[in-house]
Amino acid sequence: MSTTVTPKQPTTAEPASAAGPAAASATFPAAAASAPAAPGAPAASRGQVDISTVRKSFGATEVLKGVSLSVPPGGVTVIVGPSGSGKSTLLRTINHLEKVDGGYITIDGRLVGYQVRGTKLHELREKDILQQRTDIGMVFQNFNLFPHLTALENVAEAPLVALRPGDPRRRTTAEVRARALELLDRVSLKDRADAYPRQLSGGQQQRVAIARALALDPKILLFDEPTSALDPELVNEVLDVIRELATSGTTLIIVTHEMGFARDVADTVVFMDQGQIVESGTPQDIFTNPREERTRSFFSKVIEPAFNI
């Protein structure tokens, strides 16, 4: 846990404080119950994520069927499950890249993408959503680095343009540059700062993408299958960087197929199937003593017997 967190000035109404605890609990009993951080000082917690009965459909297919999940600040949560189970969609709802059809998500007690007005949740304006996203870093399966910008420019872009005047994270151009180099150093790519993404290997590109996600000093980092597009021999260099982040106190939520890695770093493993959370628990619980038959059959297919001692 970082101890030098400055309390962020809320720019939009927080559900609990704006409507008052009484009103909030009257309208949203679940919100008060599942957001224990809200009544206390939000400054104390950093990166508590509460997902409450989130539903999402694409056309006729319901990909999230009322998913609820609570992620403690500073924890490492790994979401596993077969493809099409809704893992990535769930992850993308956390920074409002995917709009929910029902339910809601709070970060440190504050609604993501919406604000309370009367008895309704109104979607925020794009500007405010963008501002919320500066607290949530995201790393994509296909890296999505900006190909026409160098590694350094990729990392420095958001801190230069995404923060509002008055944001305590605002820095001068020179400071942003220095910090970007520092971050590239942290992922062992300082010497490639002036390289364009296409001049880097897949593993290097993903490490730059991680540095880019860290550049705004986010409370939460989302990883959407960060090693799935990599050659096997490049997977570990990326996992090592994530492993190092796991001890930094930032909340990490990782969707991955790397079961060995999940067992190593996760505080909580969540198993999803067909748009629902089947079960969640410590890696020990989930990998060795799964309660559900569905979990057991999934792991028997994906974990090699030799590995599963």
């Binding site: 963008l130 994509f140 999505n144 900006f146 958001a158 343009v161 995404a162 880019r212 705004l216």
Partner: peptide, 20 residues
């Protein structure tokens, strides 16, 4: 994915068009 990455980083809409 370029737009998504820019949106996820909180880069404002105008900048997203002109720079990315």
């Amino acid at each position: 994915g370029q737009l998504e990455a820019a949106a996820a980083l909180g880069i404002p809409a105008w900048r997203r068009s002109t720079r990315i």
